[in-house]
Design a protein around this nucleic acid. Sequence first.
DNA 1: TTCTATATATATCAATTTGATATATAGAAT
DNA 2: ATTCTATATATCAAATTGATATATATAGAA
Lengths: 184, 184
Amino acid sequence: MAIEKKIDCVLLGLLSHEDLTGYEIKKRMDTSLKYFWGASYGSIYPALGNLVDRGLAEKRDGAENKRNKFVYSITEAGRGYLKEWLQAPAERDELRYETLLKLFFGNEGGVQQAIAHIDAFQKKIEKELPYLVKAEDTLKKVIDIDDAHQYYLLTVEFGIKTYRAYLEWCEEAKAMLGKEDKQK
Amino acid sequence: MAIEKKIDCVLLGLLSHEDLTGYEIKKRMDTSLKYFWGASYGSIYPALGNLVDRGLAEKRDGAENKRNKFVYSITEAGRGYLKEWLQAPAERDELRYETLLKLFFGNEGGVQQAIAHIDAFQKKIEKELPYLVKAEDTLKKVIDIDDAHQYYLLTVEFGIKTYRAYLEWCEEAKAMLGKEDKQK
DNA sequence: TTCTATATATATCAATTTGATATATAGAAT
DNA sequence: ATTCTATATATCAAATTGATATATATAGAA
């Protein structure tokens, strides 16, 4: 065991809560999970087939019409596998921010360009923050309906907290660069 | 042009400041840049050869003894390529936190396990934060020696700001889960 | 002096993952 | 009728990681 592909664990995690199609899994990746994890079709579909081969998930035909549709559910073995992974310590917590990379090399592009990058970053965060706040609001209202909700809320609070810190940093960083710019 | 591999841009960015060997580049990735970007030997060495082939960097023998050693420097064409990338908007700013992933599926593992994950995360951040604070201190002292230093400082300030937000979140998250746990 | 551990240094490769694309049906709106 | 968007599966080249192999240099301990 031990060596567990992350994609397997994410899929089992999602399936532990509800039965899903590959398409629905991708949608969850792009909404609820996108702030801290990602996965593409190119990894989801092969991994789904793989889970079935290993008896960790089951595939059933979910078509109600002519359209192709396969619904996946977790097996007992799958739930065991998931629990094993859940109890192991987290291995990778990493940030990959191209904005910071460009800023790090900022001297090559100059102050105005650096400020433009910070501005663009700030706008992106300002645009996304309301969705997190809305999710927080919704989750607080339904917190008692499902035990899983409090865990979802935890990740949303993380997002809100860090996004607000980002916005503070944006202002301070621009102030610092602006000051430097005037002196020249 | 347009389609630029990130690894090429990082290498040129580092080489724009000083001549480096592949090994030294990897060291910088694992220290100064590790908080917001990463790269492995498996991408660095092939990319370095590729840059030379395209005339964006130059390779020279830097051995002072029997040991293999090749020093790379940026060319004028390379500097042009770098500037083009720097002026384009940042494409990907993403977080990949396994801690949050495990927390999101926390209902499957229970409150105590979730708290343990938050604790481990908190300890990791508490351990790394002093290095960032030290880097901030050092950079502030040498800020006038090199124009590049203020940009390095900016990324360090980002790290400090977000790490402190993480620590606040850790406390709040544990309080929330602890409260929930007692009620049961 | 020799041994040992660590640092310097390049290089490669299987396995994983992304990003893009192809294909086709369903449903809603114009 | 037609067009747009959403649902749904699937594949593949290209990028990247993580691990490993190889070899020399250096500093300190035995």
